[in-house]
């Protein structure tokens, strides 16, 4: 319970960064924090007390393993996150080349 709440606080910190920061770098970093918090929350739901990793081996019982389904889905989610981060960074670099600032209030003109 308290673990879930702390993880939710981490998500809210990321949301605060997205909503209030005016620096593009900080916004990209807070999107990263949001991703970390969501992944960690899903894996926290999957944990079973006193269990081991879901890899079959001699002497390891199936009834003693954690939930493998959220782990598989989060694995794909982490990889996608890297791709989206790279794309966000590319957009930010192009905006810096054009406007010479990362401040989103200075980036106004949409055309030309």
């Amino acid at each position: 319970m308290i673990v879930y709440l702390l993880c939710f606080v981490l998500l809210l910190v990321g949301l605060y960064g997205v909503l209030t920061k005016r620096d593009l770098i900080k916004i990209i970093l807070s999107i990263g924090i949001l991703g970390y918090a969501v992944n960690l929350l899903l894996i926290l739901f999957a944990y079973r007390k006193g269990s081991i990793y879901p890899i079959l081996a001699k002497g390891k019982e199936v009834s003693q393993m954690v939930d493998p389904l959220p782990q598989a889905l989060v694995l794909t989610s982490i990889v996608i996150e890297l791709g989206t981060t790279a794309m966000l960074v590319a957009l930010a670099i192009k905006l810096f080349e054009k406007y010479e600032t990362f401040d989103i209030t200075q980036i106004r003109r949409l055309k030309g």
Binding site: A46, Y53, V66, I78, V79, L82
Partner: peptide
Amino acid sequence: LQAPDLAIVQFLFEIFALIILVKA
């Protein structure tokens, strides 16, 4: 939380993200 695959992938993600962000 007993997810070794995820720990390795997250570690690699971290290194790549650090390189991309610092370079950019």
